[in-house]
Design a protein around this nucleic acid. Structure first.
Length: 192
DNA sequence: TCACTGGCCACCT
DNA sequence: CAGGTGGCCAGTG
């Protein structure tokens, strides 16, 4: 059992790339990533995003390397981060404490992790792979993705190829896609 | 239990 | 094309 537990210490490390800050949160007991913050021009905002779920944390540079990897992936480097490093477990005794809270969310995230660099799939397609018609629920689950960028929820788009929504905003989603070579015109993916 | 809310979809003007 | 409508179903309170 390696999921987050009550007295776990959460370590937050930040890396600056260009004028953006990238923060990651790692559990000191499992040594796994429990949260990745979306990049921001303000360091404090990335930390605040995490501290909302983990009020008791410690700032450290111990995991800055991990935050740097996130920043490099954001900027379009095709890097592989071992999915084992993400805490995808569901804590049965208190699911609310774990980054991923339900089986459905986990299945959606794992399926999303399969989408190759530079490619997109639709919410519908993802739902069908999970053998459900809960298209909207797929979107909702991705909206709560604790590991944005690394679990590439930005590669999931609407059925009409419009880019769609993103926690960090529609523009950030488009930038992420452009960074990995996806052609976009207006709000629409150009099939390639 | 029930009602409501979504990072959606299909279908209709 | 744009905008509206009803439908889908997992989570939430």
């Amino acid at each position: 059992m390696e999921n987050t537990v009550k007295n776990d210490k959460i370590l937050i490390s930040t890396h600056k790339e260009g004028n953006l800050y990238f923060s990651v949160a790692i559990s000191s007991s499992s040594n796994k990533i429990v949260r990745i913050a979306l990049p921001n021009y303000m360091k404090d905002i990335t930390i605040a995003e995490i501290s909302k779920d983990y009020p008791e944390f410690k700032l450290t540079n111990k995991h800055e390397k991990t935050a740097e990897i996130v920043s490099r992936v954001y900027n379009g480097e095709k890097l592989h981060l071992n999915p084992e490093l993400l805490d995808l477990e569901i804590n049965e005794s208190s699911p609310k404490k774990s980054p991923v809270k339900t089986l459905f969310e986990r299945k959606v995230l794992l399926q999303t992790a399969e989408i190759p660099f530079g490619e997109v799939v639709t919410y519908k397609c993802l739902a069908e792979k999970l053998e459900t018609h809960a298209y909207r629920a797929v979107g909702t689950a991705l909206g709560k993705n604790p590991f944005p960028i690394i679990i590439p929820c930005h590669r999931v788009v609407k059925s009409d190829m419009v880019v769609g929504e993103y926690r960090g905003g529609n523009e950030m989603k488009k930038e992420l896609l452009k960074n990995e070579g996806v052609q976009i015109k207006g709000d629409k993916i150009i099939p390639g």
